[in-house]
Simulated scan of single mutants.
Amino acid sequence: MMPRFDILKDVVTDLGIAASFVTIVPVASPKPAADGAVARATWALPVAGLLVGLTGAVVYAVASKLGLAPGMAALLALATTALITGALHEDGLADTADGLGGGRTRERKLEIMRDSRIGSYGVCALILSFGLRWSALAAIASPWLVTLALISAHAAARAGVPAFMSLVAPARPDGLSARAGSPPGRSVAIAFALGTLTLALALGPAKALVGLVLLSLAGLILARLAIRQIGGQTGDILGAFEQVGEILILLVAAAFLHGGG
């Protein structure tokens, strides 16, 4: 019985670490995580993402029930997901856009990405992110289909993060990504399987395949940019990867689920 109890305890611990890693919900122990614990817990990122998406879906459904138009309900849903995550991924997207777009040297790009101020590239990136996601949700309209779109987008967008962390080395030794460590192969495989399963169940196998191909291409392009321009990945790069993945899955959902198809 003890090994089973230990496994269950590890699963609960990993879920708490993953949730605290991508949300502002204080679910993990306040004690510092042991070495390698965060990297190991990355398998649970899709689960944490699913819960974030579900929270946004509940807000959308309540807003729709109250008679609000799809556009307003979609805006409230997006505001909710940004609030529960502390806009962590949006911040990463903005910093990545500013750094990769504005700096001339590797050192300058990393310096810009660490700067809390936002530049024109970051503003444009956030406008595009919120605009595309809002448009996709408003086009889908149906609360049930929006639920499927949100949970699949948030789960799948985070499912590729462990693989990205494993394949692309940290750009600097003292950043968030470097402190988290490189996820073991088992965590990478489980996260990918959970993300794929969520996509397939929510959107169907064919649509899930389209989403996976787009996510893979986006990951390869971002990885190449990050390696060439700053020598690897950072926490901001990972946030940008999540945002791009979220956008792509919502666009796929809008294209196929619009009108209930």
Rank of each mutant, 00 (worst) to 15 (best):
F164K: 00
V244R: 02
P3V: 01
I221L: 14
A180Y: 13
G204M: 11
A208W: 05
L214S: 06
D174N: 12
K109I: 14
A191Y: 04
S129F: 15
D91Y: 09
W144K: 12
A189L: 13
P173A: 15
H154Q: 15
A255D: 04
G86C: 12
L132D: 11
I230T: 03
I7V: 04
I127F: 06
V62P: 06
L50T: 03
L50C: 00
P46Q: 07
V188M: 05
D10E: 14
A34H: 09
I7N: 04
G185V: 14
I17Q: 10
D14H: 12
G232E: 07
L217Y: 09
I190L: 13
L68P: 05
T23C: 03
D6Y: 03
P170A: 14
A37L: 08
T55P: 00
I127W: 01
D95P: 01
A153F: 03
E242D: 12
P70E: 13
P162W: 07
L45D: 03
A255I: 02
P30A: 09
A171R: 07
H89F: 14
L220W: 14
V146G: 00
I112S: 09
F21N: 15
G16R: 13
G86D: 11
L215T: 03
A159S: 15
A223Q: 05
V47F: 06
F241I: 06
L148E: 07
T80V: 01
R4W: 10
L215D: 09
D10G: 09
A57K: 03
P170N: 12
F192S: 11
A125D: 01
L148R: 11
A180M: 14
D14Y: 08
A155D: 11
A191Q: 07
A149P: 14
L83E: 02
V168H: 04
P184M: 09
A189F: 08
V123G: 08
L220C: 08
G260K: 07
A28Q: 13
T196H: 02
A87F: 13
A138V: 10
E246W: 03
P30K: 07
P32E: 00
L203E: 11
P205G: 13
K65N: 09
V252M: 05
L76M: 13
G71Q: 09
L150E: 07
F21C: 11
L88R: 12
K65W: 15
G101I: 10
L248H: 08
S116A: 13
P3D: 01
A63S: 10
G231V: 04
I247K: 05
A153I: 01
L251Q: 14
L137E: 05
A44K: 03
D236F: 03
W134C: 14
L212S: 07
V11L: 15
P32W: 06
T85M: 12
S20Q: 14
T234V: 13
M165L: 15
L225T: 07
M2H: 12
M72S: 06
A156D: 06
H154S: 12
A94T: 08
H89D: 13
L167E: 05
K31S: 15
P162V: 08
M2Y: 01
G232P: 04
L88V: 05
T234S: 15
I7T: 02
I151K: 02
T96R: 08
L83Y: 06
V252N: 08
I247H: 10
R40Y: 08
L248K: 02
L201P: 00
L50H: 00
I237M: 10
I221V: 15
